[in-house]
Simulated scan of single mutants.
Amino acid sequence: MMRKLGGGKLVIATHNAGKLKEISALLAPFGLGCISAGSLGLPEPPETGKTFVANALIKARAAAAASGLPALADDSGLSVAALDGRPGVYTADWAERQWFEGEPGRDWYMAMGKVEGLLQGKGPNASRDAWFSCVLAIAWPDGEYAVYEGRVDGTLTWPPRGEMGFGYDPVFVPQDSELTFAEIAPEEKHAISHRADAFAKLVADQFSA
């Protein structure tokens, strides 16, 4: 039988307060007290994996080993069919400014522009199919782990539309919709997103009778 999370503490392997709040709310009904790796002073491990699964496991295993508690990590990103799945695990890296592009930090409009520029370079008939992926990894201090993968398919549009999303949301139109993720109300987006898909699988596996 696969190991199950019990009550008690769960480390969320993030230094992002917003992500901690979102994940804590999703897990609150199951009696878990969530604390962030950042609040414990744990360092962020280098994400050297070549896949979402590998990077999620790196983060979860590092947090579990350092804290002595079970840990949950996620890794997510955008993949574009015509770009052979890029940016993929480098989704956030494509938004990082170089030294000649201004102050350090992430520029998501620039990242969206990079994707669009590469697509246009493929010609007018290039596929605009794309998908968001999310991997959730749970690791226990003794080395046991579980992985849950979520995905939402759609197409890319240009120019960006909407103010409610983040990252690449303004150019991503999910299947069966005419609105981008940035035009969809947050509660509606959360119901159909790649993260929602992964969490549904986690909940079904970890908390089902």
Rank of each mutant, 00 (worst) to 15 (best):
K50Q: 13
R3V: 04
S67P: 03
V147M: 02
W94Q: 04
A73G: 05
P141H: 09
R86T: 02
L5A: 08
R61D: 07
L83N: 02
G31T: 08
G7Y: 05
K59S: 03
V80Q: 09
G41T: 05
L69R: 11
S76D: 08
G123V: 09
G38D: 07
A17N: 02
S133V: 10
W99S: 15
A60L: 03
A82S: 14
G102I: 07
A146T: 10
R106G: 03
A137L: 11
L78E: 08
L83T: 01
D142C: 07
A17P: 04
I35F: 02
A13C: 06
G33R: 14
K114W: 08
K19S: 04
K114C: 03
L136K: 04
G102M: 10
G18M: 01
G33E: 15
P124R: 07
T51S: 14
G88K: 08
K21R: 15
P29W: 09
T51D: 01
P29C: 06
G41F: 01
L32K: 02
S76M: 05
L83I: 01
H15G: 10
D74L: 09
P43L: 00
V11F: 00
T48M: 02
T91G: 00
A137V: 08
P70L: 01
D75N: 09
K59P: 05
V147I: 11
R97G: 12
W99D: 15
K59I: 09
A65H: 09
E103G: 04
A37C: 11
W99L: 15
L69Y: 12
A126K: 13
N125V: 06
G33A: 13
A95T: 12
V53G: 04
I12E: 07
P43G: 05
L72H: 10
Q98K: 15
C34K: 10
V115E: 11
D74K: 11
V147N: 03
R97E: 12
E116W: 15
G123K: 06
D75A: 10
G102T: 12
A137C: 14
T51Y: 03
G102F: 13
K122Q: 13
A126R: 14
V147F: 02
G41P: 00
E96A: 15
G77P: 05
F52S: 06
G31F: 08
G121C: 04
L40R: 02
T48I: 09
V135C: 14
A82M: 12
S36Q: 05
S133I: 05
P70V: 05
N16H: 00
R97K: 15
N55G: 00
G6K: 07
A92G: 08
E47R: 09
A82W: 08
E44G: 00
G113D: 14
I12H: 00
A66S: 14
T91S: 15
V135W: 03
I138C: 06
D74W: 07
A130G: 13
C134Y: 02
N16F: 00
G68E: 03
N16T: 02
M110D: 07
L20F: 03
P70F: 02
G6C: 10
P141A: 07
W99A: 15
A71H: 05
G88T: 11
A126F: 12
G117Q: 13
S133G: 07
F52C: 01
A56V: 10
N125M: 12
L69K: 12
S39W: 09
M110C: 06
G121K: 10
